[in-house]
Amino acid sequence: MLLSVLREVLDYKYKAPQILLSPWSFSFKFVLLISSVVFSITQQIIIAIAYVIALLSILLVLGLWRSTIYIITSILILHASMTLGALLLHGDLARVTRFTLVAASTLPVLVLIASTTKPSALKRMPILYLLSIVFNNVLREILDVVTVYRARGVEGLNYWLRVIIASITLSISRSSSLIDSLRSRGIEVEKEH
């Protein structure tokens, strides 16, 4: 499920409405992200839930239905497990709900950012630019690595452990290659020695 969500997020850039891909729309999405955190902490719970539903509806309208289902499932599991923990440990249920709301309102915005932001939109912010390139490149390679592991018949916990280790290794090794690639184009993302 997670891998098909990743694929959906990666591929969405090629069919996203132009208005969402434009560089200036990133500022709007960033403000939406900050607002989501503030809104879910400061507003009444019912209003915050309505806000979350509105955000998820936007994802559905955009056609990111796999991501939407994934977010809903994750949030329900998170809320159930945290509530159970709070009940067992006599914790504060209201805080658990607030925490879940923060997660539920920020995740759809993060998916929206990841699926509709081209790296070139972040060119003025070198570190974010590099991170978005690494994110795109590494994600694609991870999907390739996953195919290889499946072809080799790796399953279960071993499969996921290998995927996680491969992801970390790829992120580290690719970031230095990508820094070279950016430099070859005249873009400095870190200070030279």
Partner: peptide, 15 residues
């Protein structure tokens, strides 16, 4: 103009 060996390591854009 430096063109590196493995092209896939250097792609930075979506198209």
């Amino acid at each position: 103009g430096y063109c590196w060996q493995n092209p896939y390591y250097g792609f930075i854009e979506a198209t």
